[in-house]
Amino acid sequence: MKQLSLLLTTCLLISACDLTVSDDRTAGEYLSGVMDPRHGKPGAPVVIEYSVPKQFQIGNSATVELRFQSATAAGLAMVSLHTGDGLNLLQDASFEFTLNQQQQPLSVAIEAVTNGRHYLNILVREFDENGKALLGRSFSVPIQVGQPQEKPQTKQKVAEDGERRIIEMISK
């Protein structure tokens, strides 16, 4: 662990680089991770731990376990959940918890609609004790439905003529 952390520490000291804290741990049929975006753009000081089924099938439902923790000492956090086309949310899309720097668990029931890599999108908004809006933060928990698709072969960054590849978008 010191070796990985050594790299992180070195990285930290040399430049203001990405301190991604995403530690995917596979335990049986579940995949766990930690999402800590606080090294990037400003936002609510929230970290989410998640545990999702490693994969499940169309038509089946599953439970995503979430644990929220905010560094904000007091107030209220409002959470809204939404999914893309590949998943259905099987419960209320809103949730709130008291901010007290303690972990807040939440179980989210979802249903798989189509195969693919989908995301449970989470929007957190914090308010102080007087109801004044503070900062917010968004997260996306990855959820695999069906077998993972083979990743396409990585394209070379340079085209055959030696120039950078260009994406052309047509003018209105």
Binding site: T154, K155, K157, R164, R165, I166, I167, E168, I170, S171
Partner: peptide, 11 residues
């Protein structure tokens, strides 16, 4: 997409 450069063009 392999760090491809975005552009805008005529059709």
């Amino acid at each position: 997409d392999a760090d491809s450069l975005y552009s805008l063009t005529e059709g």
